[in-house]
Write a protein that binds this DNA or RNA. Sequence first.
DNA 1: CATCTTTGGAAAACGATTGC
DNA 2: GCAATCGTTTTCCAAAGATG
Length: 388
Amino acid sequence: MEHYDFQEEMKGLLRACIRRDFEGEFSAHEHDNVFIRRTRHPLSMRFEGFPIYAESVPKIIKSWAKFDEGFEFSLEDMLFLDLETSGLGRSGTLAFLIGLGYYEEEHFVVEQIFLPDPDAEENSFDRLRELLESRSIILSFNGKSFDIPVLESRLLYHHIWLNLREIAHLDVLHLARRMWKRRLSSCALENIEYYILDHPRCPETDIPGAQVPQAYQDFLYSGETELIKRIFAHNHDDILYLAILFALIADNASYPPKAGKDHRIDYHALARLYESVGEMKTARRILIDLISEGFVSADIAYDLGMILKKERDYNTALEAFEMAAELSHGDAMIEAAIILERDRRLDEALSYALKAQAFENSRYKPNAKRLEALSKRIKRLETKLNRA
DNA sequence: CATCTTTGGAAAACGATTGC
DNA sequence: GCAATCGTTTTCCAAAGATG
């Protein structure tokens, strides 16, 4: 993929094709300039009813992303990033389209930096650098694993210095996974778009990611822009719906929710998000609300029990574990036994330990270690009881 | 009081998943 | 096809607790 000996004439022809078929401008570089295309959406625009920007970014998101306490950012500080490349490798993979999204003058701007030929690559980073100078955070979808390493590798290759690693980076893939892992079989962007944002990709104008590398190759040989058009559209939608997705999460992550509960949000998952950053009060509140609203499940009751246990509210924790045990939660039975043994209610503890044992044995594949631990526990409780 | 067991939190190892 | 991330599972250790 690296060295095409592109004749100047060929480069000129490719640029002519791009100029003919797309709205946009070429950069001012004297040689090997790049093509830049901008699409502006007014902030009032709605897509499937969703706003394109978040009202604010709640603290929970910042703590989850492990940003410094004092690090604040507004819409204008965010730069969305999504690359189209010649493959999935790291080094030696050409980023022939750098898709960027940012908020400017009441608009969301999708800016796409396209290489009319591979030799233009080293000129494609100037605009990226320029935009980064006034922005403090990158948002991406799997960008921590893919886009940033690819860019770094290419910058290194061209001996260009740009500190991408030091820039704050929020990878929405991982946030989305935490939100919807239990509800969606796949948290790929396209799937989330479909099931959460209600937006099916149009097969007429879109292109599957796997076909992107070949499509660019073909363009380089033929100058045919039909598939490039699709790549532009695909990349544009990736950026746009990434922004919309982030806005949806950001606008619904505070608790209690300002605009009422949203059926797209998994509040159990949200509770776990709060729990994972140590915000036990909020996590507990969400779970208690869920239960009082009738959304009871074994896992919800168990999680609530674990939080209460950490807070040393053993009586309430026991209630939660008993509720979960009632709904056939094996670990909850053990936790109930632990608390009851602590409280010297040995016969009740034994009863739960026996329940847990029976439950474990009834499973498709009983866990040997767990059964052994349970036998120990039962034996201990029995001797304690006999002694008394 | 000395010793052995259980618990809970921290660290390490593992594995699934996503991007083009 | 490659590799970084993150949730989950496993392992390890210190503190707490039980036993004799």
